[in-house]
């Protein structure tokens, strides 16, 4: 739609309370774009929160990592980029199996992988960047 905002950006510090910024941003995208299926948006939100949660848990220096999330609504897909200036992240295998059902942890990245069509991680000299793509249905 002409004039409709399609790129959204939010910046924060990787601490648990900042997750609300991300949830609220996804909510805003949904209200600006009623044509986006709520399931697609909700699955992108699931991935964004898992990837951000992983950063909050493993980002170093702990509590001192700044991040930037950009989201773009395109005709055929929703795309998110989460970048942070922290140290390199320990990345579990992206194609691993889900842990035993009685395990209390270890599912975050695998859930993100399962709800997305593409998930990639890149480490440059100064930043970690996750690219998340969910095709629109």
């Amino acid at each position: 739609m002409a004039g409709e905002q399609s790129v959204y950006v939010v910046e924060g510090v990787a601490v648990p309370d900042s997750l609300d910024l991300l949830h609220d941003l996804l909510e805003r995208v949904g209200s600006d774009h009623p044509d986006v299926l709520s399931e697609d948006l909700s699955m992108l939100e699931t991935a964004v929160i898992e990837i951000a949660g992983n950063l909050i848990e493993h980002g170093r220096p702990a509590g001192g990592v700044d991040y930037r999330l950009s989201l773009e609504v395109m005709l055929d897909r929703l795309e998110g980029m989460l970048s942070d200036g922290g140290e390199a992240l320990p990345i579990p295998p992206l194609d691993g199996d889900m842990p035993d059902p009685f395990s209390e942890a270890g599912r975050g990245i695998l859930i993100a992988q399962a709800v997305l069509d593409e998930l990639t991680y890149e480490r440059t000299a100064v930043a970690n960047t996750w690219r998340m793509v969910r095709k629109r249905h």
Binding site: S42, I49, F102
Partner: peptide, 16 residues
């Protein structure tokens, strides 16, 4: 309205 892997972990801990 929303659950993540931490929320699942709390339910599994409670189940056990």
């Amino acid at each position: 309205s929303f659950i993540d892997s931490s929320g699942l972990g709390s339910l599994i801990a409670g189940l056990k």
